[in-house]
């Protein structure tokens, strides 16, 4: 059996709301350690991988590892029907592995709402990626910035064009774009430390200058999720997709991998 409870408006609910503009269906793996989710956007440009450790939930129980496909949009619609103060329970029993049961319980425990949501096939959303610690070392540059600043950069640039060029070297991290009506260049002089301060832009790993061109539509989606957190970590490599990461508690994360644009 798998069962988790959370308060209405918890971080899981906020994240599911924020990924909706990219993701319809997701593959969810549950283990005793926590709840992980993988999904591809419909254009297959973005791969989303997130892990919520069991300790971020009000209660969490998973007797046996299980994997299921969830129609995220339908699940979010159901979750929206909860009221302030409700405790939300998501449950799958071994006897019935065709749907999940979502229950809302009012704070005074006088009203309970049960809903069943059919599981779907989401096996195509599973991708084989390396262990994260192996993969992170392959990024040429990794920097952290306040997520509000990241969102502001993406919004400012999208006024001019659909693409952004992110360039990183020892001296500067820049976000720039050029369109028919003009150009925008936003430059940040980074701190260089392993312990980024919350309010600053910090270059944490640097193995050589790197630049990538990305579609701002996807970047704005990443920025939307990131604003649920203080800081966002961004990794660039010419051999890997751009990585945008937010940490959830000590062990949890949301990672977006965004395929860049390349010159023909």
């Amino acid at each position: 059996m798998f069962e988790l409870t959370m308060a209405k408006g918890s971080i899981l609910q906020g994240v599911l709301e924020a990924i909706l503009d990219l993701v319809n269906v997701a593959n969810v793996d549950c283990s005793s350690k926590g709840f992980s989710l993988q999904a591809l956007d419909t254009e297959h440009v973005v791969f989303l991988s997130l892990f919520f450790p069991s300790e971020v939930f009000r209660s969490y129980r998973c007797d046996e590892d299980c994997s299921m496909g969830i129609a995220i949009a339908d699940m979010v619609d159901l979750l929206r029907a909860s009221n302030d103060g409700d405790i939300i329970t998501i449950k799958v029993t071994d006897q019935n592995f065709e749907d999940i049961t979502i229950t809302f319980e009012s704070p005074d425990k006088t009203k309970t709402t049960d809903m069943d949501l059919q599981l779907v096939d989401a096996r195509s959303h599973r991708l084989k990626i390396s262990e994260w610690h192996d993969m992170e070392s392959e990024y040429q540059a990794i920097f952290c910035m306040p997520s509000a600043q990241f969102m502001l950069n993406c919004k400012s640039l999208s006024v001019i064009d659909d693409d952004v060029v992110i360039r990183v070297n020892e001296e500067v991290i820049s976000f720039s774009t050029k369109g028919k009506s003009g150009c925008v260049n936003i430059s940040h002089v980074p701190n260089k430390t392993d312990n980024p301060e919350k309010a600053s832009v910090t270059l944490t790993h640097m193995r050589g200058p790197v630049s990538l061109t990305l579609n701002l539509r996807y970047m704005k989606s990443c920025a939307k999720v990131s604003t649920l957190f203080d800081q966002v970590k961004i990794g660039l490599s010419t051999k890997l997709p751009l990585m945008v990461e937010c940490k959830i508690a000590e062990k949890g994360y949301i990672r977006y991998f965004v395929a860049p644009k390349i010159t023909e």
Partner: peptide
């Protein structure tokens, strides 16, 4: 002109 790469260029399916 730039072309959009797909994520499958980097990660294979399980």
């Amino acid at each position: 002109p730039c072309i959009q790469k797909r994520i499958i260029h980097y990660f294979s399916k399980k």
